[in-house]
Design a protein around this nucleic acid. Structure first.
Length: 297
DNA sequence: AAACAAACCAACCGCCTGTCC
DNA sequence: GGGACAGGCGGTTGGTTTGTT
């Protein structure tokens, strides 16, 4: 037997929020600030549980939330970070401050998961149809994705992104706009900002470690295959050295804790754009429908 | 036009973690 | 140390919308 749910009390309202309730909650938060959610229902008069209030605020009413379609750049970030971090939606959302973890999770479950599945099917189709015997580790490093085939299918992903909701969410958007003035007058640097920064540093560090480990793994395998020249060996040494140095820097950052600088997002973006250009371009140009038609052959 | 299926997403549930006493 | 509690998180549900037959 676990703890009884906080919303089991009689008289607690459930289900979709009404504009009136939103206004009450927004007014309350404007006056008292977000936090201490336990007191919100009692003090505001809302017949909602504290959890529900917090969720409504963080996911819909909080200022600065971007709603609507995800653009291709956001898709790229989500896909890469999901591959790296797994289903840690809050961590992923920390790199997309305008999106909520719930939004990202929903988008992943309804759009991206499906898209990736069909993409992988198309990819394996491509790999098995090509000469598998000539497949080398170099192809692994560069992905081996059927970029050209997908490009040549002459498609656009715009219809996948075309989704609009006529539900009450748009009203919440209006409330958010009303709050913009309030946000400007709020202190710009809070404790939660620092926590977020520290979390980003940790995420970023594991991201880089992952990449370096992958590089090391690839190079170790190449060494085992005994197919490298003297020039390659020098490059490999620098890969091992790079990893060693990063481990030292990451350890220092840990010691410094929240004093550290915000992780350099541009480096992440650089990696997305440069290292995975072919893969992501191919993926983003591939719509679910296109995948299906691709697989029909 | 109606019935049904699929897709979407807001909200809920329950577990986990951090903090306070 | 450990119990109680609040907040955070990810998985899941279920109501609504959209598409298809």
């Amino acid at each position: 037997m676990g703890r009884p749910p906080c919303c089991d009390k009689a008289g607690i309202k459930k289900g979709p929020w009404t504009p009136e309730e939103d206004i009450i909650l927004v007014s309350y938060v404007q006056e008292h600030g977000p936090g201490n959610w336990r007191l919100v229902p009692t003090n505001s008069g809302l017949m909602r549980c504290s959890k529900s209030c917090r969720l409504r605020w963080t996911n819909y009413l909080r200022p600065g939330i971007k709603r609507g379609n995800f653009n291709s750049h956001e898709e790229e970030i989500i896909i890469q970070l999901q591959a790296l971090l797994g289903n840690r939606w809050a961590a992923i959302a920390s790199y997309l401050p305008q999106r909520t973890d719930n939004d990202i999770k929903n988008y992943w479950n309804t759009h991206l998961k499906k898209k990736i599945k069909t993409f992988q099917a198309a990819r394996s189709n491509y790999i098995t149809s090509s000469d598998s015997a000539s497949s080398t580790i170099q192809e692994r490093v560069h992905g081996g994705y059927p970029t050209e085939e997908i490009r040549n299918s002459g498609t656009s992903n715009s219809h996948i992104l075309a989704h609009s909701s006529s539900t009450y969410a748009s009203s919440a958007e209006n409330i958010t706009r009303l709050l913009e003035g309030w946000m400007r007058s709020s202190p710009s640097h809070t404790l939660s900002d620092e926590k977020l920064q520290h979390q980003r540093i940790n995420n970023y560090n594991s991201f880089i470690m992952n990449q370096l480990n992958f590089n090391v793994e690839i190079n170790s395998q190449l060494l085992l295959e005994d197919s490298v020249t003297g020039l390659d060996k020098t490059a490999m040494d620098s890969v091992f050295e790079e990893k060693k140095q990063f481990e030292m820097v990451a350890s220092d950052q840990n010691k410094l804790g929240s004093q550290s600088q915000q992780p350099p997002m541009f480096m992440l973006e650089k990696w997305f754009l440069e290292e995975n250009t072919g893969l992501m371009d191919a993926f983003l140009e591939l719509s679910a429908a296109d995948c299906c038609s691709e697989l029909m052959f």
